[in-house]
Design a protein around this nucleic acid. Structure first.
Lengths: 155, 155
DNA sequence: TTCATATTTGTAATGATTACATTTTTATAT
DNA sequence: ATATAAAAATGTAATCATTACAAATATGAA
């Protein structure tokens, strides 16, 4: 229907705006990747993005996805999340917020921790110039806790 | 001299104590690895530990180092630090403290952030059970700032 | 000593990420 | 429009940290 199309279009525009805002020249691939990041708030990995996008964009190269995400990160258009020791994840939300990784299902959640947000960017801590901040939490997520409650919740 | 020897011995004992405290049966390799972690507060990687220890312990296997560090981490005897996207680093100090990675020299610093230490372990945040907490900061360290100040410090 | 179990070892995968050379696209000047 | 240079994307082949796995060794109880 018409509404879906115009919504899609608006999303594309949002992606382009974010690129331009962060001094990144838009291209088909960059728009597609940024769009994916904005519309999928699941903190995808490079490989995940590649797998999904290459369906509708068969010529897409995995190298392009890696290069583009690295570009996004260094221009502040995306956040690189190293919460999982096995792969890097990405987040289009570059505001300082915390992440929670469920050790059981592997899902990464956003956490809003208002008391931490008070720290301004680009400040010095113990003499070091801070450019990036990450708050990572790991454990068992709400959903997995609920599932596990059935019988074994002793540990 | 005598003093050095007794100091070394005390360090070994500290390593063993940490293992036993965390329900890890001591072995030559485990003691050596824990001892290395305690006496080298540089947040070494598995490979770094292997390279250094294998000099005085030629039969040591890299797999053992990896397995042992994983064991330490899951028993709370060491902290796994995923601040660097290229490799995992380890810290024998399991108290909740922050880490700072210098993007220029790659060194990892400990940061004591008193206001963050207030959060007790094992609490729930937004319904998720938190078991581990990591605070990561990245930027340019004190030393690199000092070196760089000579001429180019405009950016 | 003997058996069972835990630990270590060495080698061979695995798999995410990167290097690199080639091809394609884009922008600009003619 | 065309030529040309620069930027971006592509595909393949490395790299390299980490893990899987099977064999060897050490440990501890019976």
């Amino acid at each position: 229907m018409k509404k879906d199309q115009s919504k899609r279009l608006q999303q594309q525009i949002d992606a382009i705006n974010s690129l331009v805002l962060h001094q990144i020249k838009p291209s088909m691939q960059r728009i597609a990747i940024m769009d994916y990041l904005i519309t999928h708030r699941t903190h995808p990995s490079a490989d995940e993005i590649y797998e999904k996008l290459s369906i509708g964009m068969p010529t897409l190269s995995k190298t392009t996805v890696y290069n583009t995400l690295k570009l996004f990160a260094s221009n502040g258009a995306a956040q690189m999340i190293t919460i999982d020791e096995h792969q890097v994840n990405f987040d289009a939300d570059t505001s300082t917020h915390a992440h929670f990784l469920c050790k059981q299902c592997g899902k990464i959640y956003d956490l809003s921790l208002p008391e931490l947000a008070t720290m301004p960017d680009m400040q010095k801590i113990e003499g070091h110039l801070v450019k990036e901040i990450s708050y990572f939490y790991k454990g068992i997520c709400k959903d997995c806790l609920a599932k596990g409650t059935k019988d074994s919740n002793t540990n």
